[in-house]
């Protein structure tokens, strides 16, 4: 049974403890950023930020809604990035059987630019990034080192409000259902994002598109049909066929 996160956005205050704790544990250097009219900074995930709190605001019948989305790798049950990666270079992206953590190894430097793009596109949540200097692919590691030692991931340990939760999948699913039932009383639209497929389950209290473009797998593909989506995933095979 893999480990699972429950990220309860109804409790997130966007204090960004998780975003910073992640950088501090992994000793990721700071990017030079600038103010672009948003508190969301850096603007996107990047090789130095495996975790990013996204800010999104809109008016809902005159009521301000400000949604916070602590974005990170979903550690998919069956990770498309790994599947795609294996097509080119098997074993560069791996999944830890014990924890379910999906990990980019240092072999990921072998990916060509185009191969990396395929890996990135395969991810329904647009997570994989590449360090242009080292060529390494990067993303959340589930703090696999900590988890192997019985510690919580840095982002979970630091969270003050119970937005970030982590544990055995069965326990997290149970917690997710119970939290969902509670928050639905206040936010009828509340839902769990792709709980069956991922090990990082977001509890949302607003429509997914009001958080981010890649909140749920579906949202990323807009009006695309399942067939069209699968066709996208199958692209590399077409590429291989040409070889």
């Amino acid at each position: 049974m893999p480990k699972t996160f429950l990220i309860d956005t109804s409790r997130c205050t966007a204090c960004r403890g998780c975003q910073i704790a992640c950088k501090e544990w992994h000793e990721l250097p700071a990017n030079q950023t600038r103010q672009r009219g948003s508190h969301q900074n850096p603007p996107d995930l990047n090789p130095n930020n495996y975790k990013l709190v996204r800010f999104s605001e809109h008016l809902d019948n005159g009521v301000i809604r400000w949604n916070f989305f602590p974005d990170q790798c979903r550690h998919c049950d069956v990770p498309p990035c790994k599947e795609m990666g294996d097509v080119y270079h098997e074993g560069t992206i791996i999944q830890d059987e014990k924890t379910g953590a999906v990990l980019f190894t240092d072999k990921t430097t072998v990916f060509t630019g185009e191969e990396f793009e395929q890996v990135r596109e395969a991810c329904p949540y647009d997570i994989p990034r590449r360090d242009p200097k080292t060529g390494l692919l990067s993303k959340c590691t589930m703090c696999n080192d900590r988890v192997q030692k019985g510690m919580l991931p840095a982002c979970v340990k630091v969270c003050p409000t119970g937005a970030m939760n982590f544990g055995e999948r069965a326990d997290m699913l149970k917690l997710a259902e119970s939290r969902l039932a509670t928050v639905k009383k206040t936010w009828p639209k509340a839902m769990l994002a792709d709980p069956g497929d991922v090990n990082v389950i977001f509890l949302l209290i607003d429509d997914p598109e009001n958080y981010h473009t890649h909140t749920v797998a579906q949202a990323a593909f807009g009006p695309m049909t399942k067939k069209q989506f699968l066709a996208t995933l199958a692209r590399p095979f077409k590429a291989m066929a040409k070889v």
Binding site: R16, Q19, I20, K23, E24, P29, A30, N31, Q32, T33, R34, Q35, G37, H39, N41, P42
Partner: peptide, 12 residues
């Protein structure tokens, strides 16, 4: 503290 300046870099 570079990690904090990264998150809020400029006067708004």
């Amino acid at each position: 503290i570079p990690n904090l300046l990264e998150a809020e870099p400029q006067l708004y």
